[in-house]
């Protein structure tokens, strides 16, 4: 699949102060039955966000909202940066989780650590997960929870966050993934450029380990 190039200017930061947020919480299973990639946003964090029980096909605009949940706080409406705690995205491999985050409008997630599969799934969908030190995260939480929400600019090219008070925070990102994000590359297309190498590998392996090439369709 090809993704849109990453593009984010200044955005509001939404602070979700929980550790180990799992993908079941990000998008509960009853919404995984859709066969499309879009339309998951209204059910992002469904069980925390609404007071009633979420079912597919509801009109979410009319459902009772949990006023204590951060996504419902008027300060954070329109936020596209999610600030959260360690091990974000643990649990199921469902790519519906990044689809839901993206569909809601989050393009950047900042946390001290992420679960592996989720981290990878983010890049595949044009979301930038940023890992920062626990102490920096604490700092960001205190700024993001004040009266006036924190805004920041994500400068992926130069790998830094620029806060509204002028503070700059550098971050690391894998060069290949950065390039894919910036250019919106189609990684299947990239892999297929190596078609000849894949074929050569297969020929060699077929000799070495023919039992791996049994055709299950036969």
């Amino acid at each position: 699949m090809s993704v849109e190039p990453f593009d984010i200017s200044t955005a509001i930061v939404c602070p979700l102060d929980r550790a180990n947020v799992d993908t079941d919480a990000i998008i509960p299973k009853q919404f995984l039955k859709r066969i499309e990639r879009t339309g998951f946003g209204p059910n992002l964090f469904d069980e925390w966000r609404y007071l009633d029980r979420g079912e597919p096909g509801q009109d979410c605009a009319t459902r009772p909202r949990n006023p204590d949940f951060v996504l419902n706080d008027p300060r954070y409406q329109g936020a596209s940066i999610l600030l959260t705690r360690e091990n974000f995205g643990c649990g199921s491999s469902r790519e519906h989780a990044p689809w839901a985050l993206l569909d809601y409008g989050f393009k950047v997630i900042v946390a001290p650590s992420f679960a592996d599969i989720f981290f990878n799934n983010c890049f595949k969908n044009g979301i930038l997960p940023i890992v920062l030190d626990e102490t920096v995260i604490d700092e960001l939480f205190s700024k993001a929870t004040r009266e006036r929400p924190l805004e920041m600019r994500v400068d992926l090219e130069c790998q830094r966050l620029v806060l509204d008070d002028g503070t700059e925070i550098p971050f690391e990102v894998d060069p290949f993934r950065k390039q894919c994000l910036l250019e919106g590359l189609d990684d299947i297309g990239l892999t297929l450029r190596h078609e000849a190498e894949i074929r050569a590998y297969e020929r060699r392996r077929r000799e070495e380990a023919p039992w791996l090439f049994q055709d299950l369709a036969e």
Binding site: N120, K124, D187, I188
Partner: peptide, 8 residues
């Protein structure tokens, strides 16, 4: 793996 990787 995720769904994008399933496709891959």
């Amino acid at each position: 793996i995720g769904t994008s990787e399933v496709e891959h």
